[in-house]
Amino acid sequence: MKNWAVRGLSRRRMTTAFPRGEPESVAPWSTIPVKVREGTVLCPADAIHDNSVIAEKCISCGRCSDAFAPGGNVRTVLVRRADGVFRKSFNIFIIDTGSCGACNLEVKALTNPIYDMHRLGIFFTSTPRHADALLVVGVMSENMKEPLKKAYEAMPYPKLVFAVGACAVSGGILGKSIEETLNADVIVPGCPPSPFTILDALLKSREG
């Protein structure tokens, strides 16, 4: 046991300064690109219109790098509805409706000591019965429609729905978004969104 304690202490503080400070390390291509120079661009996700990128559609592929460069801003979430009730304690249920696995890992990363969402009073639950928010990742696959509805119905009021990642938000290049099945209250763009972006979304959604 001593071994672990010493090891833990020797690593000192790992936890990010976010949300008070700025993110320490952000993957460039997980943020929304901005136009930096002229060039020909063919966006495979059809996300570029009028020289700007539609955050919901961007799949972070970097195929626009001739004219665009990563914006570097992690605070790009769109909050349609927030609820201050969750300010002190916020329990989240994750549901994977057809993701590639990357969003799952980025959401899961929030529990590691670096992002440590528990310090902010945010927790994952293992049943929708205890959940305040439903965090949906992935495109809407046919077989998951029913479980998604059931999970939403099993949650107590008040409740929020997060669409995390380009797939859940707009369907990306792989399929349909979840919007036909559930109305998302918070939109978290990115492919996958940076853990900072997801954390930012969770924090903003309880500022009601």
Partner: peptide
Amino acid sequence: VPVWDNGV
């Protein structure tokens, strides 16, 4: 209430 059985 309806039973929650892992979504099915």
